[in-house]
Every structure is written in structure tokens, then in C-alpha cells.
């Protein structure tokens, strides 16, 4: 089916690939790290967008599912020697002690484990609505974190895991990003995606049209958790160390910020805002240090950066609820439409 649209899409992916290859060859280590981080946040943002934006389930437990993916993959990729160095308080459970597998299967297993945990936890609570669901999922995030802090022989508890092989690179991250984006677009076009959005718009109406609420909600939650786990696995192998405190509510907050800023329900909005938020989070680091205004020096105020981001979230939600894109997408049709209007104006 090589029609014009598909050709353009393939071309776009190739251009993205070439741009990324050039970036990969020219950027320094620090910038590359940010590039990877941006990709990871795209995956995470899209997965939360699927649950919150498409299906309208307000979930706040994302960090917990990320933690599951991160730990599951890390325990599989670490070498037996590295594991025995880490687990000095209590030895690791025997069946994990001698496993060492490649990165790609580890990512997939991380995602699958996160999806299973997500499905098992979500199944009983999916009949809850709005704020109750939010608080229950927030609870899941906390429960997962507390459990990981206490299962010393499985996760090494509060000490965390150190010395993960740093497998995450631009190739892995952005291949997964492109697969995720393609998956999200085709999911939304499918009957499942339509059902998700029907549930978001009006649950009762959707149910009376014959949509199985439970099945679709569970499906959305499971897929979302899968990608959260994949994102967690990538993040773990980028950072090199993980511990339960990394996956506090703050992590969910950052992802929520990305989704809200991009426009709840918009795929392209999420992508753009993930890139903007990741880069500005790094770029604004100077705010936490001393600032030289030329005539005066402001002493360093650690935390200023996060104040700015919380303010940003407030301002977007109060005055600009659509975010960057609302529920629109930058698709070929969207671009064509804009171009047409632009040409008309010129004429």
C-alpha cells in the first residue's frame, strides 16, 4: 500500500532517523543524555496520555508502574557479579542471581511485568470514578514504592540498585519512541481507540451503545502500564542507578505536567511538550544556582526551578486549558489545511 500518504510517513520517519543520527554523532555526552531523556519522557507522556487523555481515567500511579518496569529490567540485565556487589545486606533471591539477558528482551519483559501488575491492581478499582480512581491509583504508586523499599532480597530495598549497564542510547530510545508514536496513532484510529474516547466523553452513553466499559478501561490501563514499564526500563539504564525514592509522586507529576501542557488527549501535543519540558528542566537548572544580574547577585535558591514548573502547570490549567494542541493533531491533513489557509491569505 504505497500510496502518497504512506510514502510521506516513511519519508518523515527516515528524516527523523537521519536528524537523530546527525545529532547522535555531533552532540556531547550531556546533550545526548538530554536527547535520550526527552525520548523517554515522550514514551511516558504518551502512555499517561492514553490512560488520562484518551480514556479519561485520571490515574496518578504512573511512577509505580515505571518502577516495576525499571526494577524488572534492571534485575535481568545486571551481571551476576554486579548483583552480588549490590545485595550485601541480604542475598538476592536465587532464581534471579544468575540471570543476565540482553537489553531488548529485558525492556520487553519490564513492560510486560508492569502491564501485568497494572492489570492486576487496576481490575478491582476500575469501577471507581474521577477523584476516587485518582486517589486509589495514587495509592498504588505508593504501595508499589513501599513494597519495593521493604523487599530487601528482591529489590535491595532503600539502597536501590547501582551499577546498571548503561545500555540506553539514542538508537534504542528513539526506535521505541517511533514505535510508540505509531502504535498510539493506530490505536486511536482503531475501534478500541474510538471506544476509549467514547468512554471519556460519556461513560453511560458509551455503555448503552454496547461498549464493555470494564474491558476497555482495563485494556487502556494495561497498555498504559506496559509503556510506563518500558519507559521505566529505559530510564533505569540511562541513569545507571535506581532506588524507590526515584519513583515518588514527583515523577508522576512531571509526566502529568507534560500531558497537560501538550493538551490532554493529543499525541503530537504530548510529544512536543515532552521535548520542551525535558529541555527546559535542564536549561532552567541555572535558576537553582546563584544568578548574576550584572548589578546584583541573587544567592542560590535551590528549588526555584520546581516552583516555576508548578506555576506553569497552574497557569496552563487556569488560563489555557487546551494546552499546546488541545485535542488536535499535527497530521498531514492538519498541515495541508494550514498551508491552504496560508496560501489563501497570501492571495
Amino acid at each position: 500500500m504505497l500510496n502518497k500518504n504512506n510514502l510521506i510517513k516513511i519519508g518523515l520517519i527516515m528524516v527523523t532517523g537521519i536528524v537523530l543520527a546527525i545529532l547522535n554523532a555531533t552532540l556531547g555526552r550531556y546533550q545526548l543524555r538530554i536527547l535520550n531523556l526527552a525520548g523517554i519522557y515522550i514514551v511516558l507522556g504518551l502512555s499517561l496520555n492514553l490512560i488520562n487523555g484518551f480514556t479519561g481515567l485520571f490515574s496518578l500511579g504512573h511512577a509505580g508502574f515505571m518502577a516495576v518496569g525499571a526494577y524488572a529490567s534492571a534485575l535481568l540485565t545486571m551481571s551476576p557479579a554486579q548483583k552480588s556487589v549490590n545485595f550485601f545486606v541480604k542475598p538476592i533471591v536465587p532464581f534471579l542471581a544468575n540471570i543476565e539477558i540482553g537489553f531488548l528482551p529485558a525492556i520487553i519483559i519490564g513492560g510486560v511485568v508492569a502491564a501485568i501488575v497494572g492489570a492486576v491492581l487496576a481490575a478491582p478499582i476500575l469501577r471507581l470514578k474521577d477523584d476516587y480512581l485518582a486517589i486509589a491509583t495514587l495509592g498504588f504508586g505508593e504501595i508499589i514504592r513501599v513494597v519495593f523499599t521493604n523487599t530487601q532480597s528482591l529489590t535491595n530495598g532503600a539502597l536501590g540498585l547501582k551499577g546498571l549497564p548503561s545500555y540506553t542510547n539514542t538508537g534504542y530510545t528513539w526506535t521505541i519512541v517511533i514505535i510508540t508514536i505509531a502504535f498510539m496513532f493506530s490505536l486511536r484510529r482503531s475501534s478500541y481507540g474510538k471506544a476509549f474516547m467514547a468512554i471519556r466523553e460519556d461513560e453511560i452513553a458509551a455503555e448503552s451503545m454496547g461498549i464493555d466499559l470494564f474491558k476497555h478501561k482495563l485494556l487502556a490501563f494495561t497498555i498504559g502500564s506496559f509503556f510506563a514499564g518500558v519507559g521505566g526500563a529505559l530510564l533505569a539504564h540511562l541513569m545507571g542507578t535506581i532506588d524507590p525514592l526515584m519513583f515518588r509522586f514527583l515523577m508522576t507529576f512531571n509526566i502529568l505536567l507534560i500531558v497537560v501542557l501538550g493538551g490532554i488527549g493529543s499525541i503530537s501535543g504530548t510529544i512536543i511538550s515532552a521535548i520542551i519540558v525535558t529541555i527546559s528542566m535542564e536549561w532552567l537548572r541555572f535558576l537553582d544556582g546563584p544568578i548574576d544580574l550584572g548589578f546584583a547577585v541573587i544567592h542560590s535558591v535551590p528549588g526555584m526551578r520546581m516552583v516555576l514548573f508548578s506555576l506553569l502547570l497552574m497557569i496552563v490549567i487556569l488560563y489555557y486549558q487546551h494546552g499546546l494542541m488541545g485535542q488536535d493533531e499535527i497530521t498531514l491533513e492538519f498541515v495541508k489545511e494550514k498551508l491552504k489557509r496560508f496560501k489563501k491569505k497570501e492571495a
Partner: peptide
């Protein structure tokens, strides 16, 4: 959902302002 996000934002703003 907007009001809840706003509530979370308010909570985070107060926390971070307090840290500062």
C-alpha cells in the same frame, strides 16, 4: 479533571515555595 489537576498544581506550588 481540570479542577483536580489545578489542586495537584496548587499542592506542588505550596510545597516547592516552602522549600524555597
Amino acid at each position: 479533571i481540570s479542577v483536580m489537576i489545578s489542586a495537584i498544581g496548587a499542592s506542588y506550588l505550596i510545597e516547592n515555595l516552602s522549600i524555597v
